[in-house]
Amino acid sequence: MTGPTSGNEAIEAAAARAEHTAGRNLPRFADLPVEEDTANLREGADLHDRCLALLPLIGVWRGTGEADYPTIERYRYGQQIVFSHDGRPFLHYESRSWLLDEDDKVIRQAARETGWWRPQEDDTIEVLLAHNTGIVEIYYGKPRNQTSWEIGTDIVMRTSSAKEVNGATRLYGIMPGGDLGYVEERAMAGQELQPHISAQLTRVVG
């Protein structure tokens, strides 16, 4: 992942993309009696002040990535990530991915994650993630600057049927041009912490 862009560059890039993405949002239920989640800052509840350091993340992002590790064969994948909020001091996070062949055709569905990013008053970010593979992780981290965020696991729990995972770190950043990039290191299957996946995603909502 290339270095993060400046705050001004990110704002300019977002304005240029908004012509195509500003009118889109998450599906909604008109009869829901409480505030709905929004992935578009132009709609819905005002963003809570505590979440301002995470503002550039809010939206729906879609793109491709690559996975590699000593215990697996390298593969490519597609991914969609959603960062949304309902006005309270946390973000809802959801990710789903699918395996791709060499022609970018979908082979099958792959990993899913859901959870919460909970920024605290001291700028610490608590992240809770649950994986469809039976893994639950608690991360802690902080913003590195206005457009990048680094988190690392404090606790990893797994069901009896899940594969061995002992720790992970993630670095997210808004790249020059406005895409969301991230890299993940993971310690699993008896291996030390090392690079595992990386992706570059383009905003499609927000």
Rank of each mutant, 00 (worst) to 15 (best):
T124P: 07
I174W: 00
V165N: 10
E66M: 08
L128Y: 14
R24T: 11
A162R: 09
A111S: 09
D123A: 13
R158E: 12
R17W: 12
R62T: 12
C51G: 06
H92S: 15
R24M: 12
P195N: 04
G134P: 11
G190K: 04
T2K: 12
M157D: 08
A16E: 13
E150I: 01
A199E: 03
Y139M: 05
G177W: 01
Y172K: 00
A30Q: 12
A10K: 03
T21M: 05
M157P: 01
I151D: 03
I197H: 02
L26M: 10
D37Y: 14
Q79P: 01
D49F: 01
G178P: 07
I11W: 09
L201Q: 04
G190L: 01
C51V: 07
A18V: 03
I197K: 03
I155H: 12
L171P: 00
H196E: 04
W116F: 14
R96T: 09
G181Y: 00
R24I: 13
R170A: 02
P27N: 10
Q194Y: 00
L41H: 09
D123N: 15
T114I: 10
E73T: 15
P195C: 05
A187K: 05
A189W: 10
D101T: 08
G178S: 05
A30I: 12
D154E: 14
G78I: 07
H196P: 01
S198K: 13
E102F: 03
N40D: 09
I135T: 11
G59V: 03
L171M: 02
I135N: 04
N145S: 10
N166E: 10
R74D: 06
G167D: 07
E164H: 13
S161E: 15
L180K: 01
A67G: 14
D122V: 06
R76N: 12
G65K: 02
G63A: 05
W117E: 04
A39V: 05
T159D: 15
G141A: 02
G152I: 00
G190D: 06
T38S: 15
I72N: 04
L55N: 06
L26F: 10
M175A: 11
G59K: 04
Q109W: 03
G206I: 08
E192W: 00
P89W: 08
I151W: 07
E73A: 13
R118V: 15
H131L: 10
A110Y: 08
M188F: 07
D179E: 11
Y69V: 01
I151L: 15
R203E: 02
G7K: 11
L55W: 00
G23L: 06
Q109D: 12
R74V: 08
D31S: 15
G177R: 02
D68Q: 11
A14W: 14
L26V: 09
E164Y: 03
T2F: 00
E94M: 10
A187E: 05
G178Y: 02
P70W: 08
G152F: 03
S95K: 09
V34W: 05
A10F: 07
S84R: 14
A13D: 15
D49L: 05
Y172D: 00
T114N: 09
A18N: 13
G59M: 02
S6I: 05
V136I: 12
H85M: 12
M1A: 13
